[in-house]
Every structure is written in structure tokens, then in C-alpha cells.
Design a protein around this nucleic acid. Structure first.
Lengths: 210, 210
DNA sequence: TTTTCTGCCTAACGTTTGTTAGATTATTGT
DNA sequence: ACAATAATCTAACAAACGTTAGGCAGAAAA
């Protein structure tokens, strides 16, 4: 982020500092264990000041949760949209998987905050995050439905269950994979190979075979 | 659990009620958001009474985390030990996967409490749970090492990474699979087929092919 | 029946929390 | 330079928290 210019940019910069601090702390300790004072301190201000930028602690966590998904959604949507319309199902899905992994670790404070705490935040927070979650799920459903319509998907596969398995399995890697020690693209390739083998008709995943 | 008899059994019954209540609440709201008063109320007593049974809130959550893993560990260890020594690697690993799934959903309050909150509890709590975690990981490492020694595992497979993928992917199903709507054994079979295909030499997973 | 002991209740403590309202400071526009 | 406004500080509030120590009730033992 460039140096702030003008008032609007200064408020934006403070806002980002608050969100960055909150995401890192929420992912590490959970929503309830992180005080406004701790977030403010990490953002370089006092707790009362946070209320100039956000109405409540809950509003902060909703934003963190939304940003966690938005980053991944954008990455997958853009990379898939950039493929030629003639791309094979395996290529489309494989690309989506790769992009999901890339964004997952690029914005890991936000994405892992979401993965870790979504299930334990107040119900109102979950409800506020739900539309964004549904949007990302719909993106994948679209990808999988198009693959099925092209005849690439094995008929026995329940596509909803597959999508749940795909997102769940990949997101679980946040808990153990260290991008400073391993290659995210390599990990993505391995997961794509396994997942595509379970999804597609024999021969459709040849380019991704492990 | 049978009706309590005598004093020791009464204390044990109260202790179990506290742990059951804590597990259910922790998994739903996280450690910090659940007060002692809430746990006590759910267990049918007042908050001060909990201190007769446990030294601290942290001791409660350590027990919950430990029990979450112990249940799964016992299930996998017992089912694998019950197999004939001549059992094929695919059979051993598939059985382990099945048992992991079964215990995961049978004791889901405890297992999902562990899966969901382990990463956000105080460091001392994590440290106290670590030996139990390491024990379960070692169980799987043993299973996988024996399969490799028998020549059933593809040489390119990093067995540590595989074990992390196996446990991570399976545990992630806690977030979306509803055992009242679907069959756990069926889900386990599907996961085993996919995982074994990624792990074993060609032909070694024939009985589990999907 | 009386005594002992377990298991729970209760009131209270010191600390922490999210939040508010007013004051102050820093920045921008004229 | 001054005025306006944004951005932050500060003190305070009511509520909630984990925990403690003493008391009480009921069950079991003598």
C-alpha cells in the first residue's frame, strides 16, 4: 500500500491496520479472546479510537471474515475466466484449485481467520458472512456444473459433496503447510491430481495424473 | 453411562456432565467465549462448584481436547490391531480411515471441539494437549511405515505429508457432514478410495477403487 | 442416631471487557 | 494565519469474568 495522501487515505490506512491486526489476532486466539485494546495496540492506537472506524467489534470480525473469502473468490474467478472457452474440464478445475491455494496462503491471516473461527463467532456474525460464503460456493458449483454438462464428470459423483470435500480439504492445509518450507504450487498440484481423479471420467484428468 | 453408585461415582458423573457441557459449548463458541457460569449451568450446577472437580477452566479444556483425540486413537488402534497380520496395506489403512471417521462422528462434541479450537487456545493448553496429538500421529506413522516396508506405497509419496492430508481432510468433514442425513461408513469409503489411490502402488488399492 | 465427609452453594473479590462521550491534536482547506 | 474537520486520546461506566473461601445439605460410615 502506498503512502497515505489526504484524509480519506489516512482513514483507509488506519482501517487496514486495524483489520490486519484483527485478522492476525483472531486467527491466533479466536474472536472472544481478543480484546479491542489488543487490536488497537497492534494497530498503533487506543481502543476508543477504533470506534471512529468501526461501529463494533462484531463489525470488525465480519469484515475480516468477508475479506478472507473475497480474496480467494477473486483469485479463482479471475483465473478461470482467463482460460479459453475451449479449455478442458480438468484444466478449468485444476486452475481453480491452484488459484484457491495461491490466495489461501497469500492472504493467510484473513483466510485462516475465517477457516478457524467462522464456526465459533456469534450467530449474527455468521449470518452477516453467509452471503459471501454462498457466493464462493456458487462459483464452484458453476465450475462443476459446466464440467458435468460437458460430460467430463463421473455420473456417480455428488457435486455438492465434492465441492465440500474440495474446499474443506484444501482449507485444512492452512493448519500444517508452511509456505516458507514448501512450494504452494507443488502442493496444489498434488491435491488437484487426487481430487480430479476422484471427480472426472477415466482419462479426463490425464494431464494431472500423479 | 450407568446410574451413579456411591460417592466416587457421583463425582465421576458430575465430572462427565461438566466435560460434556464444556465440549459442546467450546466447539460452538470457542474457549474464551464460554464462561464457567455457562458450563456450570449446562451441567446443572453453579460455577463455584466446578472447582471441586477441576482446578481451572484451562484444565477443563485440556481434558476436552485430550478426550477428543483419545476416542479416535482408541478406535483406530483397536480396529487395526484386530486385523490378521497378513492383511494387505490397503485393508489396514482403509480400516484405520473407517475407524477414524466412525469415532470422529460418534464423539463429535469432543472431536470437533479439538479440531475447531486447538489452534486458538492459550499456549499452555496447546502444550498440554500436544503429547496426545503426537501419540495419534505416531500411530498413523507406524501404519504408513509398515505399508511402505511391505512395498505397497509409491516411492514418491512423502508419508508425513500424506498423514497430514489424511487427518486434515477427514477432520474437515466435521464442518459439513451431517450423520443424520448421510451414512458415515459410505463417506469413509469414498475418502478411503481417493486417499488410497493417491498413496499406494498401482493395483494395491483394487478393493477400494471407486 | 450421630458423626464424618463429599459435593455443592453463595457472596465476594480484583480484573477485564466493549463501549461512550467529551476533550484534544493533527491535518486540510480557504 | 485561521477555521473547520478528521482522527485520536482519555476517563469513565456497567457488566462480565475466573476464582476463592466459608457455609450448608445430604449421603455414607460408624
Amino acid at each position: 500500500m502506498t503512502a497515505p495522501k489526504g484524509r480519506k487515505d489516512k482513514a483507509d490506512a488506519s482501517r487496514v491496520r486495524i483489520l490486519d491486526a484483527a485478522a492476525a489476532l483472531f486467527r491466533e486466539r479466536g474472536f472472544a479472546a481478543v480484546s479491542l485494546r489488543a487490536i488497537a495496540a497492534a494497530a498503533g492506537m487506543q481502543a476508543g479510537s477504533v470506534y471512529y472506524h468501526f461501529e463494533s467489534k462484531e463489525q470488525i470480525v465480519v469484515e475480516v471474515l468477508n475479506l478472507g473469502i473475497a480474496a480467494v473468490h477473486r483469485a479463482v474467478a479471475e483465473s478461470v475466466a482467463a482460460l479459453p472457452t475451449s479449455a478442458a474440464a480438468a484444466e478449468v478445475i485444476g486452475t481453480g484449485i491452484r488459484s484457491h491455494f495461491r490466495a489461501l496462503f497469500q492472504f493467510s491471516a484473513y483466510t485462516s481467520a475465517n477457516v478457524r473461527i467462522y464456526g465459533q463467532v456469534p450467530a449474527a456474525v455468521r449470518a452477516a458472512n453467509l452471503p459471501v460464503r454462498r457466493g464462493y460456493e456458487a462459483l464452484w458449483d458453476g465450475i462443476l456444473d459446466r464440467a458435468a454438462a460437458a460430460g467430463a464428470v463421473r455420473p456417480a459423483v455428488d457435486r455438492r459433496a465434492f465441492r465440500l470435500m474440495l474446499i474443506g480439504s484444501i482449507n485444512a492445509t492452512l493448519e500444517w503447510f508452511d509456505p516458507d518450507r514448501g512450494d504452494v504450487a507443488d502442493l496444489a498440484g498434488r491435491y488437484a491430481a487426487i481430487l480430479l481423479h476422484g471427480l472426472l471420467q477415466p482419462g479426463e484428468d490425464a494431464a494431472w495424473a500423479s
